[in-house]
């Protein structure tokens, strides 16, 4: 049962975080966009809050590392080069596609945005198909 309660509780926290971002700052919580605007494409006067968000996430990661180290177990049994390829795809794809799991998957769907619905279905289907493809290539061994 814990297997479902923890995801549900964690998900509710994510929904609460997105709600607070909207209530306080009037923004959607799109993490790929926040990172892009903090690092690669900074716009004047629209940078520092992004770094505060990023440091908040890093601080949360530190708390997890200390109090819930099980958060960071179960790496994939893949070669290091796959992480490079995956990172390039995720970085390029999320900016081209205007969002990731947080901005489209959580915030966009909650806003009933047709763009986000299409994006979410697309990256889910792509991910499911990619697992089949990569397994047949022996990537996960």
């Amino acid at each position: 049962m814990n297997e479902y309660v923890m995801p549900l509780f964690g998900g509710a926290l994510i929904g609460l975080a997105a709600s607070l971002m909207l209530y306080w700052n009037g923004r959607v919580t799109g993490i790929s966009g926040i990172i892009y605007g903090a690092t690669v494409a900074p716009k004047k006067g629209d940078v520092s809050w992004r770094w505060f968000f990023i440091f908040g996430m890093l601080f949360g990661g530190l708390l997890l590392k200390i109090f819930l180290p099980l958060s960071f177990v179960e790496p994939l049994p893949t070669a290091h080069w796959t992480l490079v390829v995956a990172g390039l795809l995720v970085g390029f794809g999320t900016v081209l596609g205007s969002g990731c799991t947080s901005g489209h998957g959580v915030c966009g769907i909650s806003r009933l945005s047709p763009r986000s619905l299409i994006a979410t279905v697309t990256f889910m289907v792509a991910g499911i198909m990619a697992v089949v493809l990569f397994r047949s290539m022996g990537i996960y061994e």
Binding site: L83, L89, V90, G93, T94, L96, G97, A119, A126, A130
Partner: peptide
Amino acid sequence: LVIGSFLFGVGWALAGYCP
């Protein structure tokens, strides 16, 4: 939007990480 999301999905599956 569609192509970017597709590429993201492929990378997500390859690494198990989203941003």
